[in-house]
């Protein structure tokens, strides 16, 4: 019987199709002088699969990879020389933060935050981005806890457990 973890490797079955999907993104990035070769695309996919495995996650599609390319290819901090390495590191950061925020943040929102920090606060530094996102995820978790408690309060859970805030 297949296990969920087989999902990532199942994607390998259609490896060529996936590489072509990544290469399709060149249409958007070429404008910024950033172009991936089939070997680059394969490296990115291989790294992605490893990160997913290491972080105990499974992914249904390569939409995240395509979205990272789409959102970061216009960055002035990325050069053709470090394009592939940067994309690989962005994948690692992305999945790491997904775990850290307990999947409470959507893919698009996280990529938007990453791009914003990368461009406006980190000056293109991936190390700084990691550090800032660590603080961001911590703050996000705290906010989520408060939000959950407030929601429970609205649902009367405080009342149920005898912890009425106004008593």
């Amino acid at each position: 019987m297949l296990l969920p973890t087989d999902f990532n490797s199942m994607n390998n079955i259609g490896q060529t199709r996936l590489i072509n999907e990544i290469l399709e993104m060149n249409k958007e990035s070429r404008e910024f002088n950033l172009v991936l070769t089939p070997r680059d695309a394969a490296s990115i996919l291989e790294a992605r699969n490893e990160f997913l495995q290491q972080l105990a996650r499974i992914e249904m599609s390569i939409d995240v990879s395509k979205s990272l390319i789409r959102n970061f290819c216009n960055s002035s901090f990325i050069t053709p020389e470090d394009y592939v390495a940067t994309l690989i590191e962005l994948h690692e950061i992305f999945y790491h933060i997904k775990n850290e925020t307990d999947d409470k943040i959507g893919d698009n929102e996280l990529i938007r935050v990453m791009k914003d920090y990368f461009e406006n606060s980190c000056g293109g530094s991936l190390e700084l981005l990691k550090s800032m996102l660590a603080s961001y995820s911590e703050e996000f978790r705290k906010t989520t806890v408060v939000h959950t408690l407030l929601k429970e309060d609205q649902n009367g859970d405080f009342k149920k457990s005898g912890n009425k805030p106004n008593e």
Partner: peptide, 8 residues
């Protein structure tokens, strides 16, 4: 909102 989830 997300294309990936934890294995659990």
């Amino acid at each position: 909102e997300s294309t990936s989830v934890k294995v659990d």
